[in-house]
Nucleic acid binder design. Structure first.
Lengths: 351, 351
DNA sequence: TCACCATCTGTAAACGTTTTCAGCTGCTGT
DNA sequence: ACAGCAGCTGAAAACGTTTACAGATGGTGA
């Protein structure tokens, strides 16, 4: 069998003694005479034929690929989203391209623009900053986009949001209600959407609870573990010291916990720690972290579904207007704020 | 501007008053008269033209996409690999498709077979089991494949391995040398390659250290956090109880640590815990985990580079024979085995 | 002035599919 | 016996590129 590259529909046609049109029809299950079906299937099997997805995409205008772009695949929140998105995508016969942008705004924009190259049918984007340029680019994207995160109301783009201001309030209120008075805040960069919103929630909740806002109890750096540890060490030096850490995500919270342990203090007896995102990290450490879930799994799933709907198909046309859904934050209490707590609804470490 | 779909090379040609060949040449930087270049670039910019990657792939036979398939994107080891692979891929102008197989063997095989659809130029596969069928399929893959993991010597496929038997020995020896005598082993499924090899290392090291093998100190289930916790609880009930846990990965180790804490025991005073993979999880908890690094980052990077080399290009032809590289395991001692230990080389939580 | 060459340009084929259209076959009903 | 029809089939066009080839243009040297 002289091998002129991988088998194509043409090789099958020759071998089966039919036209390429018949081959295509048989392979796609469109009507054909039993005899023809037999010949074609036999030839295809013998040649080990696999349809060329690229050619198919060119003809059909659909690649059956979706793209998910986020800041950093190292963050467990995004991992959770990837998992959900991929499940939904796969069920619909789509593959998933991922793109970690390293929080580079330029890169983020270029991902949206690259929708024009038709490599994927749609994009799920988790932007960390929203500039006017983002909005401009998003509204003129060459294909459907679903944004996971806050987006101004007027922007005509599907978005799956969460109320992280309310989430932060939930956390602070819980701390206040369990008797904490000097609640420190370990935040990520203030010029990011989550960084900004979570701080708003923190300030609002302090006011609601009648607690003073002490700037010495606030520290903003980065969203990583090391940053959390360093920030906590600095905050612990305040006078008087904090009796609780509210951290803008679970990575920061785990870093902060390390600092607390390094100082020989006990969680939660000496100091309480609350994280945000309720990622698997919250369940991984000791003590398990009280954390405010922002529905990452749900948001991933919803975003994927919305994207698929926007892609539309024969029977279901794409919705006309941009849609918004909001996932509600949920406080999950664990032992990092309440000694010995075993949450009733916690799926016991289904990490 | 009547919109007949997205702009193509044809629309540009019309608008610029040249042929599509000229457009293509200008866009690809092949010689053209300055006047022509100007006209084409102007038209392209005005139309907001983005080349159709699918058409380009069909013509060129290259998609500039790579696929990475692994068991579960939730495992931090794979996240580390994804990150490295994507960095290398991006630098070479490739995108990354990811595919989590849920440890389904059939799915794994289908990923390899789907290389035939030409959707991606090559595959990096992290199989968890190796059956004769795997070997058969791998050797006859329709495109280049690099395997991350053990592969029999004779198999003509590139592989990036690690010596996890030696890695397990490193861990057990460290425990023995720090005075532990009843070293329990928390393992994943025995019918997986890592599960099998890590157990071999465990047994070998016990023998080397002159320690008896007590079957009551061994437990194999699953590779997750919850499994580690459950296994540890069971093992702690042994009589006499273990004074150390060697865990087949960091997730198991964190789960085991939770169990230890839940029993009110101290790490490392009462019981030492060692993990494997040296993933970011090892640095995330408290106390930080002593863990045996198996070079996930390095393996990811190397695999990506090998794959790109095998793809070859104009000046560098692809290597002829299958290649093997092996990453050396490395013990990273932290406070979960040696009280108060601060590792000299630990990049202090560069999570 | 003319032959020659270098440079640029356009036509057309190719990549591997899907799909439209028209033609062919063999059957049914009268 | 023949019109009509249903069911299959094949030729050809199309998707948007790249590229081989040949044709056109202009400039140079004798």
């Amino acid at each position: 069998m002289p091998d002129g590259g991988p088998p194509t529909i043409v090789s099958i046609a020759e071998r089966a003694g039919v036209s390429i049109a018949s081959v295509s029809r048989v392979l796609n299950g469109v009507g054909a005479r039993p005899e023809t079906v037999r010949k074609v299937e036999r030839a295809a099997a013998e040649l080990g034929y696999v349809p060329n997805a690229v050619a198919r995409s060119l003809k059909g205008g659909r690649t059956k690929q979706l793209t998910f772009a986020m800041q950093d695949i190292g963050n467990p929140v995004y991992v959770a989203m990837v998992r959900e998105i991929q499940a939904v995508a796969r069920a619909a016969g789509h593959r998933l391209l991922i793109h970690s942008t390293d929080a580079d705004t330029e890169e983020e924009l270029s991902v949206v623009r690259s929708l024009g190259d038709r490599r994927s049918d749609g994009l799920i984007l988790c932007p960390i900053r929203i500039t006017p340029e983002h909005i401009e680019v998003l509204e003129n994207a060459a294909g459907p986009v679903v944004v996971i995160g806050a987006l101004p109301e007027r922007v005509r783009v599907d978005a799956v949001q969460t109320d992280s201001v309310a989430g932060a309030q939930l956390a602070v209120r819980h701390l206040a209600e369990t008797g904490r008075r000097r609640i420190a805040f370990v935040n990520g960069p203030l010029d990011t959407v989550p960084g900004h919103n979570r701080r708003q929630g923190y300030l609002k909740a302090l006011a609601d609870q009648g607690l003073a806002h002490d700037p010495a109890l606030e520290h903003a750096t980065d969203f990583g573990l090391a940053a959390g540890r360093a920030a906590a060490h600095r905050l612990l030096a305040a006078d008087p010291p904090p009796d609780a850490f509210f951290c803008a995500n679970d990575q920061l919270a785990l870093g902060a916990s390390q600092a607390v342990h390094e100082r020989g203090l006990r969680i939660p007896q000496d100091i309480a720690v609350v994280g945000m995102d309720d990622s698997e990290l919250a369940r991984a450490g000791w003590p398990p972290l009280t954390s405010v879930g922002l529905g990452s799994e749900e948001r991933g799933r919803t975003a994927a579904r919305m994207l698929l709907e926007r892609l539309g198909d024969a029977e279901n046309p794409a919705p006309a207007a941009a849609r918004r859904t909001t996932a509600q934050p949920r406080l999950v209490v664990r032992a990092s704020t309440v000694a010995g707590h075993v949450p009733a609804t916690d799926p016991a470490g289904t990490a």
